[in-house]
Design a protein around this nucleic acid. Structure first.
Length: 105
DNA sequence: TACGTGACAAGAG
DNA sequence: TCTCTTGCCACGT
């Protein structure tokens, strides 16, 4: 039981550590968890974090800085709106200044 | 218990 | 340089 939340909880914790106006990638989180190539699991954990307000999933994108998961948000551009609100520049579902906002745990 | 799925990443052709 | 394939791990059915 607690094991289940354990892995998820770690992903949430990392996401919660992301400062305002910063973004990170699934791979970075996965690598921090010790499973460099299990980035898919990070996405899965994010899927479970929908109802959690403390998890800024909109700040988590793939290594390209593309808002891959925006499809999972309520609005079509909610994820983009949130990121733009934080000073990010989104273009074509991709963060233009991704490397500038890139934050590693 | 076993198979399929999933918001990715990296390597090889 | 671009596209395709494989690997990875845990959850859901």
């Amino acid at each position: 039981m607690d094991k289940n939340e354990n892995f998820f909880e770690r992903v949430y914790q990392i996401a919660r550590l992301i400062p305002y106006g910063r973004v990170t990638s699934y791979g970075a989180i996965a690598r921090h968890l010790g499973s460099g190539r299990s980035a898919r699991m990070v996405g899965w954990a994010m899927n479970a974090s929908h109802g959690l307000e403390d998890v800024p999933a909109h700040r988590v994108v793939n290594s390209k800085g593309i808002l891959t998961g925006k499809h999972h948000f309520e609005g079509t551009n909610l994820m983009q709106q949130l990121l733009e609100s934080e000073g990010a520049v989104i273009e074509n579902n991709q963060i233009v200044n991704f490397k500038e906002l890139y934050w590693e745990p």
